[in-house]
Design a protein around this nucleic acid. Structure first.
Lengths: 250, 250
DNA sequence: CTCTTGTCAATTGTCAACAATTGACAAACG
DNA sequence: CGTTTGTCAATTGTTGACAATTGACAAGAG
């Protein structure tokens, strides 16, 4: 138990797409712990004890504390004053909630971007669309899902609304996505991907010709489809696996 | 400089409306500091030095650190790793952004609530509507604005979307509102209040009869009006006062 | 037997000292 | 004269020890 497990990342190449590699120690701890939670090595509802974590990671309690705050912000742990930190159970309901909030924010982003599009972001979005179209027949579903998420984030960028962008990134850093991407995304058949790619392209075109209504409508369809399919898959998974506790306690 | 300024609140009656009084020391510090920022005693862009704050408040740097994280979450300060904490300038643009995000989230809340209304929240919202209607002719504008905000929060509650509610509360705890409520809200004339109260009542009615579209449409009108008028007032204020730096640097 | 009360270990909150990094200024160099 | 490099004070990051609170368990009263 006294073995320092943390390996400090010496160099950190900044991510070009808005997601930053961890720099400070607390961020690295948050990353590690978050990964543990996602991987299921830390069970839902489990209590996290600062001293234990500190010893496992080979640091003192200070940085661990800050890491826990970071994870609280990402909704991975719940922090009760004086009563400790617990890993947050993810109910199906809360996942649906997350999808809906993302939907609302993304539509605002699309609407705003379509009102006053900025060329550079339009270009980036166009690249993402091209990628999506290329991946309709080939490529694995996870990659397709990731690019979709990136495209949505590009739209958040393009909105020019800094608060909106921040919230979107926060939501994208949420546990759920990693969880989803770890599930078999069989539902992303070529037909489904075709439709998604088309809708994204439609959104792009609408943005280009400054047509907020169409942009919002297309993106809404795309994201609603995504939501329904992902939720169905997750519901199935949970029914099969023994993760029922998490549902009940969420 | 060695005078302990912080007076610990002995008892804290929990707020019945979702906003909690500060309990822990970091939260109290965040409250104090936040108030200072809103009051303008801490200027936009000013650097906040942990040791100074700690000495002023009569505590050590640990709690101050956590208070700064809390304020970072509320977007009152910006935290640059290894480079200190700065009070965040509030540009008109960022205020507009805030309004727009609140708008999007509130509309999602209204839509969701209207899909499956829960009686208790509908009742609460009805009470708020009654209050608003009572305040059309009498009462000061600030009170009217506050009740409006509360009604919106009730809708967030009524959505049953925990994430949405959390975000809404976070946004409501933002500096801006306090700032706005400190400005002369002359634009809230009886006519304007009449319209706002009517729209809120329309929203309530639509929720009651499970008519999401109307609910969304009414609330959108209400909040868009609010946004336009508030932004106009703020723009005027900034033009008059010497707060131009904040605009430029935001 | 049930409920209250007291004690105790475990854990979080706080503190003060130490280590590491930053930005600025000045001196040396081209 | 402009640019680079070295030094230094100021400030943040981290640590380990101490204080305060919690929840559980046991002992005693009703």
């Amino acid at each position: 138990m006294a073995a320092p497990v943390l390996k400090l990342a010496a160099t950190n190449d900044g991510d070009a797409d808005g997601r930053f590699s961890p720099r400070t120690i607390p961020e690295q701890l948050a990353e590690e712990l978050g990964a543990d939670i996602v991987a299921g090595r830390r069970k839902a509802g489990e209590r996290l004890i600062e001293l234990d974590l500190a010893q496992n990671f080979g640091v003192s309690r200070g940085p661990v504390r800050e890491a826990l705050r970071i994870l609280e912000r990402r909704r991975m742990v719940e922090l009760l004053p004086r009563r400790g930190a617990y890993v947050r159970p993810l109910s199906l309901k809360s996942i649906a909630d997350l999808f809906n909030v993302r939907l609302a924010l993304s539509l605002l982003a699309a609407q705003t971007m379509a009102t006053a599009p900025v060329e550079s972001y339009v270009e980036t979005l166009a690249r993402r669309c091209a990628e999506l179209n290329d991946m309709v027949e080939t490529g694995d579903p996870i990659a397709f899902a990731r690019v979709t998420t990136r495209a949505v984030r590009t739209i958040a960028h393009g909105s020019g609304n800094a608060l909106l962008l921040e919230l979107s990134i926060d939501l994208a850093n949420q546990t759920v996505w990693e969880t989803i991407w770890k599930t078999p995304l069989d539902y992303l058949t070529p037909e489904v991907r075709r439709e998604a790619a088309d809708l994204m392209t439609e959104t792009l075109d609408a943005i280009r010709r400054r047509d907020p209504e169409t942009a919002v409508r297309s993106l809404r369809l795309l994201l609603e489809n995504d939501r329904e399919r992902a939720l169905a898959v997750l519901a199935d998974l949970r029914k099969e696996a023994g993760d029922l506790r998490a549902i009940a306690s969420g």
